[in-house]
Design a protein around this nucleic acid. Sequence first.
DNA 1: TTAGCTGCAAAAGGTTTGCAAATTA
DNA 2: TAATTTGCAAACCTTTTGCAGCTAA
Lengths: 148, 148
Amino acid sequence: MVDDAIGQVIERLRARGRRITVARRALIEALIAEPGHVTAEELTATMHAQHPDVAESTIYRILDDLEQLGIVVHVHLGHGPAVYHLATGSHVHLVCDDCGGIIELPSAVVDSMAAQLRAAFHFESRFTHFSIGGLCQGCQLRSRSDDG
Amino acid sequence: MVDDAIGQVIERLRARGRRITVARRALIEALIAEPGHVTAEELTATMHAQHPDVAESTIYRILDDLEQLGIVVHVHLGHGPAVYHLATGSHVHLVCDDCGGIIELPSAVVDSMAAQLRAAFHFESRFTHFSIGGLCQGCQLRSRSDDG
DNA sequence: TTAGCTGCAAAAGGTTTGCAAATTA
DNA sequence: TAATTTGCAAACCTTTTGCAGCTAA
């Protein structure tokens, strides 16, 4: 069924006139195999196990292309490098400013907020591209005790 | 009253043991004079009109320091450089992914959302550090007509 | 006087680009 | 064959850092 998922993506690429190269196939495999959010650097490392001569610039180019085709999205969780994942299973991220911990939310959680912004500003919001920053429970407690 | 605002910030710096240098005073003036969101580069340009030999690295260092003191915040509106503004008047940004247009919201608009995240995840969210991406009305209409 | 700040220059980190060679269809 | 894709290396952009000299208190 992983193979199946790969086949489906490849189909979509062919349908849009892309050529299926070793690097593309390997990157799609890596994206499907990886569980969560991966940086370009991590993807490169994964792919280098099997294909050590794929250049990181190639990976950035393929990711760009996949993103334009709506197959992949990238997310900014914090100040570091962007992370990538398949566009299916897009979700919202709460990221703790102190410890960097991540809570993933189903997009539905922000629906009422999105509706509010749509009604008031005609703005169709996507909460998925940037994280929502803040403090997790642990860091709230810690900063309180630091104060005292 | 601008002078007054400057004086207040300088007081806070002194109270925390900072030295008041030409660069610091000029940067505070620039921040108070600038209307909205400014990048470090824009601040540098502004300051160079009066003080051409202040280094950009100095500006980054002072901004860091002011941020640690809670006087300044930086915000990521999109993929470009961070923008800075005084911590007073902190607000939420809706940024159009297509045209880059910005809508500023009073923080109160996200209060109910914040309450929801607090109740469900004990997460104290700050919607001010990253923008909320999406599509503004104009770009929604444009992309619809591009489809057809 | 002396700690804190600054300028300069260089480096770091993430991402993009130019170009000739390789590869896909 | 012809156009797309790639590897390599270099550039780019924003931000950080090391260090010696300057300056505010």
